[in-house]
């Protein structure tokens, strides 16, 4: 097992390297990150010259890439200056915005797993029942719904019409406590938390529904397939109670392919988070990516693409490990 882990992590390095290069190359096609700095009042012309030199921006692509990668791994230059947020480095900008993205996308990832697996099993066990049809329809709905439009619809219904939830942002600017306005940062932690939860309910719903559909269907068909396997019949022939047959013998086998599927859906999760943040005006790294691309903030976009790639790769890696834990056939082969 340990060897397996070490081997798998070593295999990640070239993949990450390749991803880094490709995204660097692509993003640098967006424009010259220093040209726009001229408009930044915080940066003097000499500074621009100095920065250009530090980043080796006049050198060939490979050299540029090398210095950029060095700074990404060991950020002495803070991953470069942002043009979108004058006076801030990409690192500062991103690290301030990453927590909310991680918080709400991991919440919806967990919610989606918790919902889709039991519902998929239920759907399979009650194949062709009314409940199965309802779940199937719901699943297809989730798979077919364009995330951004679903978000807009929820905003229209629950924010604009019903006023149950806020339409944008992930926390309010200030609270009124006993008639006195208190800035969000100064408010008690539990108030902050509740307020954020309230703001993030709709975005989390959007992102969860987006993921649940496919997984539910997959779990259902996996369970149906496993249910007719020989070893399930063997388990019945042993006289095991039906519950043991289903939840010990069938389920454990049915859930294994789902692990891979969940691992593979990390790019989708990131894309979903990006759209959701954009629609709900949440200042996370997803919306930041969009804004960075639209305003040609090269260094920020580069760092973000790199971070997303790392997240995807880590997701796949975790899925591989869970897979190896769940399936004894993997460890030795």
């Amino acid at each position: 097992m340990r060897n397996y882990l070490i081997r798998r992590s070593l295999e990640l390095i070239p993949v990450l390297f390749a991803i880094a290069f490709v995204s660097f190359w692509l993003v640098s096609k967006m424009g010259d990150p220093f040209a726009v700095l001229v408009l930044n009042p915080h940066v003097r012309p000499e500074d621009i010259q100095r920065l250009r030199h530090i980043w080796h921006w006049d050198d060939p692509l490979v050299v540029r890439f090398w210095y950029w990668l060095k700074d990404f791994v060991w950020p002495r230059q803070g991953w470069g200056l942002s043009t979108l947020a004058p006076g801030q480095t990409a690192l500062q900008l991103i690290s301030r915005r990453i927590p909310v993205t991680i918080a709400f996308s991991s919440t919806s990832l967990i919610a989606a797993i918790i919902l889709s697996i039991p519902l998929g099993v239920y759907s399979a066990l009650r194949q062709y029942s009314v409940a199965d049809y309802i779940l199937t329809f719901f699943a297809f709905f989730g798979m077919s719904m364009p995330t951004f439009w679903f978000g807009i619809m929820l905003i229209y219904l629950f924010a604009v019409k019903l006023h149950w939830f806020p339409a944008a942002g992930y926390h309010r600017a200030f609270f009124i406590i006993k008639g006195v306005p208190v800035m969000f940062d100064k408010a008690p932690r539990w108030m902050q938390f509740l307020d954020e939860a309230w703001h993030l309910t709709l975005p989390i719903t959007v992102l969860t529904v987006f993921q649940v559909g496919g997984w539910l269907r997959y779990m259902r068909s996996s369970m149906l397939e496993v249910k007719s396997m020989d070893y399930v019949r063997t388990a019945r022939a042993k006289g095991l109670p039906e519950r043991t047959v289903i939840y010990k013998h069938a389920f454990r086998n049915a859930v294994i392919p789902i692990i891979t599927l969940i691992g593979l859906s990390f790019p989708g999760l990131i894309g979903g988070a990006m759209i959701t943040e954009t629609v709900f005006a949440i200042d996370g790294i997803g919306r930041l990516t969009y804004n960075a691309v639209m305003s040609q903030d090269v260094f920020v976009a580069m760092a973000l693409i790199m971070i997303f790639s790392i997240l995807v790769v880590i997701g796949n890696f975790l899925a591989d490990i869970f897979y190896a834990v769940a399936d004894p056939r993997i460890r030795y082969s």
């Binding site: 993949v15 995204s23 790019p267 990131i270 894309g271 693409i305 997303f308 790639s309």
Partner: peptide, 9 residues
């Protein structure tokens, strides 16, 4: 293992 949508953007 590429983040599809950000790259598409």
């Amino acid at each position: 293992s590429l983040p599809v949508l950000p790259l598409m953007v």
